[in-house]
Design a protein around this nucleic acid. Structure first.
Length: 906
RNA sequence: GGGCGUAUAGCUCAGUGGUAGAGCACUUCGUUGACAUCGAAGGGGUCGGGAGUUCAACUCUCUCUACGCCCA
């Protein structure tokens, strides 16, 4: 097989992916090997691959391919999330386009349509993950609503209920009036918006007055409409202004409701008038105040329906003109808020806000402008309404304790460690988790009610009926569970739980979880809680959190900003390998990644470089190696490159073990390009083309082996090009994806390393001198060595061909240089005098040498200064002192030779 | 208000208790038959400000400033 002149990623990617998948190589049979397990964060069935997925999945694939190459039974579990709200919204939107709505159908019909949509259009992302090269186990692809997961979800719900860790409760929830469902605290996003602060007079009942004679109490609010459901006015118990009226009542304007004045710490005497209106049914703080004031949750007045329109309160006091109005101005139409303000103003209960304009004139406003931290639903996008309903709650506080302990004890290692604090802070202040959703798409809650409202929780209706007794009429709770309730079970539900399967036994706990920090609470924390509770062990031993991929300017990517980068476009342009390598190289712990196309292009170039190096090998008879261990080698350059492989592999393994993806990528990148391509292949050209057949054979064998090691070590990062080259370089008995990770069984050869390092330094100096003296790079030169020894002479003899070919140094003599113009270089204690044909620019050469001399002198001076400090010699580590002494000697010797060289110039 | 993070070359970022590195960009040169998606040689930073610990700090501590994120 001959490699094409140009590398075309598109031509090979699909072919290799299909090959791997069809041959089942993502999950080879390895029951006898050590297991290694990662579960993929199940993407939403509605989703398509975005740049964040590309990062997340590339990192996971690097790890799983690395472990697979190391021979482990590497399992990467994959599947999709039913994404309750998101999916229901997609299908409803499509219905709207056809002038239909969800409620035109029965629940069963609607759910059936969602399934149809899921089968037809859902899961685009799974094809896109394949394009990225991700080697997950598709043969066992899961879904959060497949039979096995259903079973797991039901069991978890029933068990938690029976243990008292799931309960039904009436309290305020975050209600999304757009989606008409409860949502959890995490799904609420608080945003600062410009709003207004109104001040009202609430008249005191029964002729009561304050000390100053006022017959009203002043309250202020950002939500005037809720006064229709006010049930109290609170003042601080220590507030002297109001002490006399605690226990008295006010008569609310508009409704005429008589409500008590209560003392409660919640009222801040410093804020406004110090008195606050209390609406327990529509405000979380007021709910608590209401409870303390003795109202039961069931007594708290509700004035809004599920769409946040005004409805009549239980006491019937809301005037008809308010009924049906939206809570506030919506789509240009005034709502209850505006009408309340208008009526209060008309009736003289509004206290105007006075401001001064720039001329010092007073201006009256209805309200004071103010920035208000306002809760929005993350999906529905409208203001959340605290609403009093019956919902199901998980006792998260109890479940969190072992999850906190797991991180404290090290059973779970969080990487980077800085996230531990966030984990603890959240877990230690965790609130009950509202898990019921008023949706149709999702896991229906396995709870049944009888006609008296008695609850029966069971795996199925028969079980509930058995509990209730024959003949009792039961109806099932219509609600479904929060999507995250099921994905929390992913690390064990996908392995067969509650069945005791072999997979479950072998692959739980998972070894590693890689996720973005944005789902730390939503998903990671809940997996930890559920996993530990049901499996009695942590879900994963390590948790790696990565950042966000940002736009080139550092801003967050969003559709509305139009700055979203499509990973598939990048794959089309540069190849999947280049995009993957970019992700790895940019992933340093604890930092977001800024998108940079130029850098992706750079890694495309890297792939091309490797391709061309392989072509060079191919035409020089270098091919697939037949040994895993490093070949025996005599030539220093071969011994050197083998040592470099050993060092590279050590550094790479360490970086991957530490989850330092950037260090790992850079290690293999620089070895391949700088060491192998730029030096090794250049230095061995004269050997390959030389007379010494034995040396050439050795070099071909070593070069083939090194290229193999590169291909294997690079495979986790760039799976496609490496698999292509693996096969192109020779006959293989297995595919690269299941090849063996390097085991060079060789040590670092210090002697060879020193020799090649010297050679590289000398060649670099030779090149440098030519540029400085304006000598054409191809010019062949001769050198006369001063201060050389036998060892140097031997080295020069061994490397003569390389010096000639790569250094353009055709002869080296140990005789004194002839008189006449020459350039001089100093390398490792010897001076090389390079006679030049014709005149040279003496000043340029002098300047060049002087610059080098000054650098050496500067360093020598700094070192001698340090060594001259008795404190340094006494207190510093002996190694540091030794090194300083050695460095000083070197630098002084170098400076001396350079000075001599300058002197010789006259 | 609480917590976390970041400030290093023009840009994007690594980095170590012993006076700094990469990629891109920039400058100059280059057809030594793998590669111009390339090669060679360079220029460019007192590592945000201040104080402290230390023989020695870009690296540790404190503080200030700026920016970002999360929570309340």
């Amino acid at each position: 097989m001959t490699l094409d002149k140009n590398f075309d990623p598109a031509a090979i990617e699909a072919r290799w992916y299909e090959h791997w998948e069809n041959k089942g190589l993502f999950r080879p049979e390895r029951d006898d090997r050590e297991p290694f397990t990662i579960v993929n964060p199940p993407p939403n069935v509605t989703g398509s691959l975005h740049i964040g997925h590309a990062l997340d999945n590339t990192l996971q694939d690097i790890i799983i391919r690395h472990e697979r190459l190391k021979g482990k039974d590497a399992l990467w579990v994959v599947g999709m999330d039913h994404a309750g709200i998101a999916t229901q919204m997609v299908v409803e939107r499509q219905m709207n386009e056809r002038q239909q709505k969800r409620t035109d159908f029965t629940r069963e019909e609607f759910v059936e349509k969602v399934w149809e949509w899921k089968e037809e259009s859902g899961g685009t992302i799974t094809q896109q993950l394949r394009r990225l090269g991700c080697s997950m186990d598709w043969s066992n692809e899961r879904f959060t609503m497949d039979d096995g997961m259903n079973e797991a979800v039901l069991k978890v719900f029933v068990d938690l209920y029976n243990e008292g860790l799931i309960y039904r409760d009436k309290r305020l929830v975050n209600w999304d009036p757009a989606l008409k469902t409860a949502i959890s605290d995490l799904e609420v996003e608080t945003v600062d918006v410009k709003g207004q602060f109104w001040h009202f007079k609430y008249p005191l009942a029964d002729g009561v007055t304050l000390a100053d004679g006022r017959d009203y109490i002043e309250v202020a609010t950002t939500r005037p409409e809720t006064m229709l459901a006010d049930m109290a006015v609170a003042v601080h118990p220590g507030d002297e202004r109001y002490k006399s009226i605690v226990g008295k009542e006010v008569v609310l304007p508009i409704t005429g409701r008589r409500v008590p004045i209560v003392a409660d710490e919640h009222a801040d005497p410093e804020l406004g008038s110090g008195a606050v209106k209390i609406t327990p049914g529509h405000d979380f703080n007021d709910f608590e105040v209401g409870k303390r004031a003795g109202f039961a949750a069931g007594e708290m007045l509700n004035m809004l329906d599920g769409e946040a329109n005004v409805c009549q309160t239980a006491d019937g006091l809301v005037p008809d003109e308010f009924i049906g109005l939206h809570r506030f101005r919506k789509e240009g139409v005034d709502g209850a808020r505006e009408l309340v303000v208008q009526r209060l103003k008309e009736q003289g209960f509004l206290i105007p806000h006075i401001s001064k304009n720039k001329d010092g004139e007073e201006i009256q406003h209805d309200a004071e402008p103010r920035t208000i931290a306002t809760p929005f639903g993350d999906r529905g996008g409208v203001v959340i309404e605290p609403w009093l309903t019956d919902q199901w709650y998980v006792d998260a506080e109890t479940l969190a304790q072992p999850a906190i302990e797991a991180v404290k004890s090290g059973a779970i290692e969080i990487v980077p460690k800085s996230w531990e604090k966030t984990w603890f802070n959240w877990m230690e202040n965790i609130q009950p988790w509202c898990v019921s959703r008023q949706l149709w798409w999702g896991h229906r809650i396995p709870a049944w009610f009888d006609e008296n409202g008695q609850i029966y929780v069971a795996m199925d209706e028969a079980g509930a009926q058995a509990q209730a007794g024959a003949g009792v009429l039961l109806s099932r709770d219509p609600d479904v569970l929060d999507t995250w309730f099921s994905s929390a079970l992913w690390p064990f539900g996908t392995l067969g739980w509650p069945e005791k399967t072999k997979d479950l036994e072998r692959h739980y706990p998972n070894d590693l979880l890689i996720s973005g920090f944005d789902i730390l609470f939503f998903w990671d924390a809940r997996m930890a809680m559920q996993g530990i509770h049901f499996m009695k062990d942590v879900p994963w031993k390590r948790l790696y959190l990565h950042g966000l991929v940002r736009a080139e300017d550092g801003s967050k990517m969003s559709k509305s900003k139009g700055n979203v980068v499509d990973p598939l476009g990048l794959i089309d342009q540069y190849g999947a390998d280049a995009l993957r390598f970019f992700m790895a190289a940019m992933e340093s712990q604890g930092r977001d990644i800024k998108m940079d196309d130029k850098r992706v292009e750079g890694y495309r170039n890297f792939a091309t470089k490797l391709w061309n190096a392989s072509r060079f090998c191919e035409v020089n008879g270098i091919g697939a190696s037949n040994t895993l261990a490093a070949p025996k080698a005599a030539l220093p350059v071969n011994r050197w490159i083998i040592s470099e492989v050993v060092e590279t592999q050590r550094a790479l393994d360490k970086a991957l073990a530490d989850l330092r993806f950037d260090a790992a990528a850079n290690t293999i990148y620089h070895f391949t390009w700088d060491r192998f391509c730029d030096w090794y292949l250049e230095l061995t050209k004269p050997v390959l083309q030389g007379e010494d057949a034995a040396a050439a054979d050795e070099t071909r064998i070593v070069a083939g082996w090194v290229l193999d090691q590169i291909i294997v070590m690079l495979h986790p990062f760039m799976p496609f090009i490496t698999e292509e080259l693996w096969h192109a370089m020779g006959e293989r008995s297995y595919d690269l994806i299941v090849a063996k990770w390097p085991e060079p069984k060789a040590e670092i050869d210090a002697q060879a390393k020193a020799e090649v390092d010297w050679l590289i330094k000398l060649v670099s100096e030779l090149r440098s001198v030519k540029v400085d003296l304006n000598i054409s790079p191809g010019t062949k030169m001769t050198a006369h060595v001063r201060d050389g020894d036998d060892e140097l002479e031997a080295k020069i003899a061994r490397q003569g061909a390389a010096l000639d070919r790569v250094g353009r140094l055709e002869a080296i003599s140990f005789d004194a240089a002839p008189d006449g113009p020459s350039a001089q270089i100093v390398v490792d204690g010897a001076t090389y005098v390079l006679p030049l044909a014709g005149a040279i620019d003496i000043d340029a050469e002098k300047a060049r040498l002087t610059k080098t001399l000054e650098a050496a002198q500067k360093e020598a001076k700094s070192l001698s200064g340090r060594l001259g400090n008795p404190n340094f010699v006494e207190k510093a580590k002996p190694e540091a002192v030794e090194k300083a002494r050695a460095d000083l000697a070197d630098k002084e010797a170098e400076a001396e030779r350079l000075q001599a060289a300058i002197n010789r110039l006259g």
